[in-house]
């Protein structure tokens, strides 16, 4: 199970636009790897070069010992692909889609039921794909990518355009893909998604990788302050400013917010004063890291 992926110096230019401008990374076997960035950052083009849909103008990709753009059947049988659009055969039922994709990979028909079960579409098996909801379509398209039990799975923005419930729902499915030791590469423009799913994340913008690490390390590296809030009237603003470790205090109608780099100390002080009414603690997120890196409004 799993496969090792190496991308080195990938470049792809469309006219004057360098869509991908020297992207390198490696993905270890069994790793859940994320390409995170706004629309137009070059994530999908990078993914397409790794999958072998596009031959890089310069640079190289290897999946174990294979060059994906050669489209060797031995490698393709080990790859599961979920594309951005819902790429289905017209007017087939969910079951028929899975059977057809299974046949393309030489899989016994029995896998279909197993996959329907895994993505929770058993009761939709005989519905045509045109009648499925957005979330159901995405789950089916993931099932189609997994029908042949691949070692490497590519997911291109699987949760784009889904409502929050459907997204969370899909996350559970996506986590289970990786459980069995598969290598997964996911593109997304949702910060929380990358944080929740990925072992390591490459933050991309304008065709380049800006930072690559585990989500926790990226946030830590930012050295961003924590914001601690309590309900209005719980604590006097001057008292808060006097606390050791408090960098900044904002007294607003909605409550009092203390900005600090030493949250443990502030929280102890608050507990000591019994001033924990309506407490909320907000640490930095990948979004903060991204904004810090790009220095502008997030455009997704």
């Amino acid at each position: 199970m799993g496969a090792e992926i190496t991308a080195e110096g990938l470049v792809m230019t469309y006219g004057d636009v360098r869509a991908v401008d020297g992207v390198s990374f490696t993905v270890a076997s069994g790793e859940f790897f994320g390409l995170l960035g706004p629309n137009g950052a070059g994530k999908t083009t990078t993914l397409e070069m790794v999958e072998g849909l596009r031959r890089p103008q310069s640079g190289s990709v290897r999946i174990d010992d294979h060059i994906p753009s050669k489209r060797e059947p031995e490698l393709q049988r080990r790859m599961g692909v979920q594309l951005q659009a819902s790429s289905f055969f017209e007017r087939l039922t969910a079951r028929e889609q899975l059977d057809t994709f299974g046949a393309l990979y030489g899989v016994a028909a029995g896998r279909t039921d197993e996959m329907l079960e895994q993505v929770g579409l058993v009761d939709k098996a005989d519905d045509r794909t045109e009648d499925l909801s957005g979330g159901q379509k995405q789950r089916l398209s993931i099932a189609c990518a997994l029908i042949h039990d691949p070692d490497v799975v590519f997911l291109d923005e699987p949760t784009a355009a889904l409502d929050p419930q459907a997204r969370r729902n899909l996350w559970d499915v996506l986590r289970s893909i990786n459980d069995s030791g598969r290598t997964v590469i996911l593109t997304t423009h949702y910060m929380d998604e990358a944080e929740a799913l990925c072992d390591r994340v490459a933050i991309m913008d304008a065709g380049r990788i800006l930072e690559l690490d585990t989500p926790a390390a990226l946030v830590r590296g930012l050295d961003a302050p924590v914001r601690i809030s309590v309900a209005p009237g719980t604590l006097d603003a001057d008292e808060a400013r006097a606390m050791a470790g408090s960098d900044d205090v904002a007294d607003e109608e909605s409550g009092l917010t203390i900005t600090t780099r030493d949250p443990a100390r502030i929280l102890t002080e608050l507990a000591h004063r019994d001033a924990l009414d309506g407490l909320s603690v907000k640490g930095a997120s990948l979004e903060d890291v991204f904004l810090d890196l790009t220095g502008r409004e997030y455009r997704a």
């Binding site: 999958e51 072998g52 059947p73 393709q76 594309l83 790429s87 393309l104 030489g106």
Partner: peptide, 17 residues
């Protein structure tokens, strides 16, 4: 046209077909 638009052509290109 439909298969090109909905990405099925690309999907088939990545299948061992």
């Amino acid at each position: 046209v439909v298969w090109r638009k909905n990405g099925l052509l690309r999907r088939l290109r990545l299948a061992p077909v």
